[in-house]
Nucleic acid binder design. Sequence first.
RNA 1: ACCCCUGUGACGAAAUCGGUAAACGUAACUUGCUUAAACCAAGUGUGUUGCAGGUUCGAAUCCUGUCAGGGGUACCA
Length: 856
Amino acid sequence: MESRYNPAAIEEKWQQLWVEQGVDLTPEITDKPKFYALSMFPYPSGNLHMGHVRNYTITDVIARVRRMQGHRVLHPMGWDAFGLPAENAAIDRGVHPAKWTYQNINQMRTQLQRLGLSYDWNREVTTCSPDYYHWTQWIFLEFLKAGLAYQREAAVNWDPIDQTVLANEQVDSEGRSWRSGAKVERRLLKQWFFKITAYAEQLLKDLDQLDGWPERVKLMQENWIGKSTGAEVVFKTEGGDHLPVFTTRPDTLWGATFMVLSPEHPLVEKLTTPEQAAAIQTYQKAAAAKSEIDRTAEDREKTGVWTGSYAINPVNDAAIPVWIADYVLMGYGTGAIMAVPAHDQRDFEFAKTFDLPINVVVQPADREIDAATMKVAYADEGVMVHSGPLDGIPAGKGAGQSVEAAVKWLEQNGKGKGMATYRLRDWLISRQRYWGCPIPVIHCPSCGIVPVPEDQLPVQLPEDVEFSGRGPSPLAKLTDWINVSCPTCGEPARRETDTMDTFMCSSWYYLRYPDACNDHQAFDPAKTNDWMPVDQYVGGIEHAILHLLYSRFFTKVLRDRGILNFDEPFKRLLTQGMVQAAAYKNPKTGKYFAPSLLDLADPRDPETGDPLETVFEKMSKSKYNGIDPEQVLAKYGADTARMFILFKAPPEKDLEWDDADVEGQFRFLNRVWRLVTEFADRSTAASAANGALSKAEKDLRYAIHNAILQITEDLEGDYQFNTAVSELMKLSNALTEAPCKKSFIYQEGVETLVKLLAPFAPHIAEELWHLLNHSDSVHQQPWPQADPTALVVDEIPLVIQIMGKTRGTIQVPAAADKQQLEQYARESDLAQKYIAGKEIKKVIVVPGKLVNFVVE
RNA sequence: ACCCCUGUGACGAAAUCGGUAAACGUAACUUGCUUAAACCAAGUGUGUUGCAGGUUCGAAUCCUGUCAGGGGUACCA
């Protein structure tokens, strides 16, 4: 018999056997409760990194436990395989994106298989494969039919490095592209959009359904959707045009002293007087050149130009000047605002810069505000003044306060209505790149936009293309491919050359797994409705808005198309923390150094000799702190890597890589190995039960069933894998120390340990299970059940407190009631020492826990 | 500026409902095994839970303030 733990020998063996036996395939039996466990699928960059390992290990443990607990489990994997890196590889190295991508997929699949992840590989999906993108195109056409896909010319984010447009979600708060990091520019282009704003309210409201999501992710989505409630008020220009504005403070309408339009507002041209035309046009040009981020950056001086015209305030018929300024955005509200400088800081600054009038309409209780002397806008509570019908009403958004009264007045007088606006913008989904899913649309000079008929899908990506440089998409140059006849009228027409945002492909992949091989449908709704929603989704926090918001949107649209019967795709979400490692940084220069160049006992900058700072940061090439999973697997095996990752930190927290702790887990698995093999080696079988258990047996049995209870609890709810592993260690320690190694209880303990270990370290558990003379798989064993009778104890320690300070414990019968507990406590030597001669004012008894004496 | 999260031994962490703070593991040290070291085994030490108040018989846990680190949003009308 193998006497040493040798992961290299057993891991590969079991991985092969499991594939042969099909133990990880999804069962089709329907009498078991379903459980859909899903990790966010990776982009096939070619190399697995530790973040992936952590993500997939977590999901794998969840899937394995559920299987043992009697669920039919769907646990699939696939590839988010369209995207720019493949195209850049083609440009830089001359490899076709498809070849590069599929090579990477093969490499990464092998790496994943080495981790012992229990995937049903029969359901693998690859978004760049025509079998898959066929249905991405079909979904696009569904959106088109629903009126939720449209083309529009708009000022959009242009990434100058990747040479493509980007959605708002893909630009960070500093105006940089999520992928290339380049500062985005603003360009006026005709682009495809998805009308996600039509679902803003539902996307916001249904966050309430997501009890199993981290609060902070829900909060981030809530902020991103950015609902503001207020009113739409319709102003009129002197020429009689309607000029609606959105405001959250309709109550301050009587204090509006001017209006500001976005430079792109359609009425600007009409409102501009000949004298102002030159100034307005200059300003419009300057604004167009700036990105939205630049325009809205804070602490910029207010700029603007008067159009020369006036508008009529509908509440008092006052004529107020109409300005344009770039701080008003065409994409939000109506692209026009009424300015109330006395009560809005931005308007106040604008009024001060251009010497415009300020009218106070809210007065605070404790002082009097004077328009001439005020230094900042007043936005707090007070009482309405100079506001006609609102005079005397308390200012505020609550019931019976001024905003409510103003909305009521507007509606009664036909001057406006209550309304909500959202910060969320429509999703820009077209990209000027080759390696993406073609948009299945044909542009016909006479019929306009014509969808490619469903029987002609998929529109295949042409393979024979040239990648010359980072110019425009190579598709735009393929005249043979572009020129087609219109499917409706047969006249010459042109294909759409833009491809879809890759987030489109990943917004529905989880719907495909339940029916991944379907070649005549995206999926059979019956199968998808059966498996969905995903019971547990696991992935990185970086998708808190992007992928998770888009997927929720897709789900709701397909539900409204009658294809799906649920509202939300992901019932529970776990966002795992980053994997960090020590990096060595010169605090003066900010430069990082590879550990191989340094003496780690005293790290110094090799150039300057400065002492270096050791910091834990996300693994990256530029910081020289990456740990290659391949090397860890080669040295310790997958089971150790898994155990380390699970034990080192709770799943949502960042995890600091530490080689010493990896060693620690390897040692633990070695201890388990010895413990089990030594037991299996003993030829004398464990003695059977005869009569009552000894004290040692009872104690051991308690330890076994307590471990079952604790680990089972840790795997429910918050997924505390770190404490679950520590419970495994405690059980292992208890078995090592147990004086009753010949008892059948000891055998129960050893077998339970192996079963409890199975989801965490699947290979060693399987090997040990077989060494214990079992011929079936440990992964098909039922999850151990804690026996309540084993957890009953005769005596418990009772804490004695005096004035809330713990003084010690006494042993008391577990069955004692409150009165008896107090009695035991009073009589104990421990308490006597402190309460002798003192008056006891109060006694607090917490059954099963403590007795506290409050004395004089 | 606003919102959110996190501060516990040398380090990672654990502590249902407020009830023995530090389980479990790293690292360090001692001893045994060994020719020696590693491995392995036995053992040892580390604490006013970031800080200041408050509530309570009792606070890591609840409340107020404050400091530090991280994240999100940001002229959104």
